[in-house]
Design a protein around this nucleic acid. Sequence first.
DNA 1: GACGATGTAACTCTTGGAGTTACGAATATG
DNA 2: CATATTCGTAACTCCAAGAGTTACATCGTC
Lengths: 138, 138
Amino acid sequence: MLSSSRFVVAVHALSVLARFRGKGPVCSALVAESVHTNPVVIRRLMTELERARLVKSVAGRAGGFEIGRDPAEISLADVYFAVEDENVFRMHKTDPQSSCPVAAQLGKVLSGPLRTAECALHSSLAKTSIRDVAFAIV
Amino acid sequence: MLSSSRFVVAVHALSVLARFRGKGPVCSALVAESVHTNPVVIRRLMTELERARLVKSVAGRAGGFEIGRDPAEISLADVYFAVEDENVFRMHKTDPQSSCPVAAQLGKVLSGPLRTAECALHSSLAKTSIRDVAFAIV
DNA sequence: GACGATGTAACTCTTGGAGTTACGAATATG
DNA sequence: CATATTCGTAACTCCAAGAGTTACATCGTC
């Protein structure tokens, strides 16, 4: 399972920004209130989303965040990549020198199927956009 | 990403048991040595695998663990379900009473796509069996 | 220049996995 | 029967990571 709710929080925040699109920047305090968390938590998450060009930040008074591009062009997979950079599956430390053939070769044997499974997850997430989420809401 | 290496360790342990199939029970110390961890960690994991009928334990002297059924009939999805019972995606706490429509409805809107993505992951994992893994190893 | 916003450091709190020790219960073996 | 070996499990520590919080420098508008 996912170790954090970062992904869902990011989708939440982007949905808010999508609905405010064209109305000027939204400040972290407002997003934080909707997500029910702390503004700093939002700003930290926004840093990662900005790196992925999913949002733009506006500095100074009356600043805040705007969605980086058309919400229809941002998929849940994009968001997932932006905030959950590590692999879905965590390997334990294997010893390639082990006298046990399983220990020595498991990593190599397993990497293919696990990569395939990750791709399946990403492909599925790619089918839904932030627009789909944000404007399914009344 | 996955918060633990439990899944991969379980696949590792089951691969060892698959290769010892028909040669009597394998004790936790031996599996632990291959996985490079502690016997208690293995026994705890085995408790969950036994609950899912993927292994059988043999008590007493000369006891240990045996694989529960034909390794070709155990998929990585079965293993995943057995040891990672929580959802892939962790939701944050939403407030259905919130005045913000996104906060109030996000959970409902998102549940469909997320469930679909989990299914895609499981379907992909279902295509590989413990036999495929254990006997790809020399 | 003052105000309101971001960016970020620093710290704490909490949660969960992992590792370890210990010991009772079960059971094959001599 | 006595012993040795193994599971099952409780109790504890250690560690890592997310989340929350406070604080403050910086930026840009009014």
